[in-house]
Design a binder for these strands. Structure first.
Length: 121
DNA sequence: GCCCTGACCGCCA
DNA sequence: ATGGCGGCCAGGG
């Protein structure tokens, strides 16, 4: 297993999930992003042991069971840019949630200082 | 198996 | 700052 420092999700929750290790690793990593901080798709993928698979992070969040209550809003694109279209509902929602945690969002992007470094393997 | 799509990314004009 | 392009890779038809 070359999953780096990432551990599987709580057994109690993984039972009824997809059984896809990659997705679970990503979900777990996203859960680890501290409140008030954000990370990027690429960084999450790396931390989850999937270097170069930023898109996989997007997919993982997309198909994540709502029951997991993942802090998906803490994941932004490279450079702190919100990935959703400027006018989309999701974009507004993410900005709202971030601001609710004290993260400044300007012109669809968060300050670089708000981006955390999820420890790279 | 082939083709298209996409909550991405970095590079370059 | 802005837009285009190729590279990347997993899903779905």
């Amino acid at each position: 297993m070359r999953r780096g420092s990432v551990q599987p999700l709580d057994p109690a929750r993984t039972q009824s999930l997809t059984g896809n290790a990659a997705l679970e690793a990503i979900w777990y990593t996203v859960c680890a992003i501290p409140r008030g901080q954000v990370s990027t798709y690429g960084a999450v993928a790396r931390a989850a042991g999937l270097p170069g698979r930023a898109r996989q992070t997007g997919y993982a969040l997309r198909v994540a069971p709502p029951s997991l209550n993942l802090p998906w809003h803490r994941v932004v694109g490279a450079g702190g840019r919100i990935a959703f279209p400027k006018s989309s509902r999701a974009h507004a929602e993410q900005a709202r949630r971030l601001r609710a945690e004290g993260v400044a969002v300007r012109a669809g992007r968060v300050a670089a200082s708000a981006i955390t470094d999820l420890g790279e393997p």
